[in-house]
């Protein structure tokens, strides 16, 4: 499902990511572990197509994303890759519903309000569908971010430090929701983190070390 071959990425003379071969199957979960500066976020961005490797290939499903044009890569990312970030960043000027409808629009998918309602219901946010972002609690915002990442039924779900700023209770709740939704959608899940609290929940780890 996710296949990395001989990728190398760096800034100036400093190599940040250097992986000869790594792969993850459809529906499998994996943690990218490592200290700050170890290249976890960079690798996640490479997998999301937000960065282009200096060399090597990254394939998601049957698509080698390193060979896609900029426009095709944007479209692929919108439809096949779900991204969850550390802070629940949403478009403040829009309502919850419009944030999700925008996600469909930017991915070039037709407007599907039913799907929006469905995914919000799954995350117990049905009652907040028309709420403004500023009216939501931090936990609700985080759940809307998860809903947004799952909305277009992506093949792969990438989460960057989703729990680092949460207390234990919320950390557990958020991870459970992400894992449950990934399983429900049969999406491959990769979480980049240095949060040791969630290490035990995943069998599959990729340890990244500072170059």
């Amino acid at each position: 499902m996710v296949d990395i071959q001989n990728i190398k990425f760096g800034y100036l003379d400093r190599v940040v990511v250097n992986i000869s071969s790594w792969s993850l199957g459809q529906g499998e979960h994996c943690l990218f572990l490592g200290n700050s500066g170890s290249g976890k976020t960079t690798l996640l961005h490479l997998l999301a197509g937000l960065l282009k490797p200096d060399q090597g290939h990254i394939s998601i499903g049957s698509t080698d994303i390193t060979r896609l044009s900029s426009t095709k890569l944007d479209r692929f990312r919108g439809r096949q890759i779900g991204l969850i970030f550390q802070s629940a960043h949403l478009i403040d000027v829009l309502s919850v519903k419009d944030n999700l409808l925008l996600t469909q629009y930017l991915a070039g998918l037709p407007k599907d309000v039913k799907r929006v309602e469905e995914v919000l219901e799954e995350l117990n946010l049905g009652h907040q569908i028309n709420a403004k972002i500023y009216a939501l609690s931090q936990g609700e915002m985080q759940r809307v971010t998860i809903a947004r990442a799952l909305l277009n039924k992506p093949q792969i779900l990438l989460a960057d430090e989703p729990t680092s700023s949460l207390d234990d209770e919320n950390c557990e709740r958020v991870i459970s929701q992400i894992v449950r939704q990934a399983e429900k959608n049969r999406a491959t899940l990769i979480i980049s983190t240095h949060d040791q609290r969630i290490k035990s929940r995943f069998d599959n780890h990729l340890l990244l070390e500072n170059p």
Partner: peptide
């Protein structure tokens, strides 16, 4: 700029 970056991460092209 973070809004725009999020939009790009959601599939918006540079042109959009």
């Amino acid at each position: 700029k973070y809004d725009l970056a999020i939009m790009r991460s959601l599939g918006a092209s540079r042109r959009k």
